[in-house]
């Protein structure tokens, strides 16, 4: 379940952030998302926040929680799993 969600998230990250030259296989689920080789910055994090609200109906109440939630793709998947509203 988690692995499936991670794979879906990788594609959604690429699509949402319009990342050029990146395929899902290029994204390591455990590497830091921000500041890594994907060129993701703090504005992208806020886009991912919108993605979580839109696709998973999960909210991130503040920046500090956001930092942990977007630490990696796996962290995102975990946050979604823990906070998803039924």
């Amino acid at each position: 379940m988690m692995e499936e969600l991670i794979e879906t998230l990788k594609q959604q990250i690429i699509t949402t952030l319009k990342l050029s030259d990146i395929k899902p296989a290029d994204i390591d689920p455990d590497t830091p998302l921000i500041g890594g080789n994907l060129g993701i910055d703090s504005i992208d994090t806020l886009e991912l926040l919108v993605l979580l609200e839109k696709e998973y109906r999960v909210t991130v109440p503040d920046v500090n929680i956001g930092r942990k939630a977007f630490a990696s793709v796996r962290a995102m998947a975990q946050y979604i799993t823990d906070n998803r509203r039924p």
């Binding site: 050029s20 080789n37 060129g39």
Partner: peptide, 15 residues
Amino acid sequence: RRDQVLDKQYPAFGK
């Protein structure tokens, strides 16, 4: 496209 103006990869180009 990115490859038409830059040799190096630049993921942020698309956004």
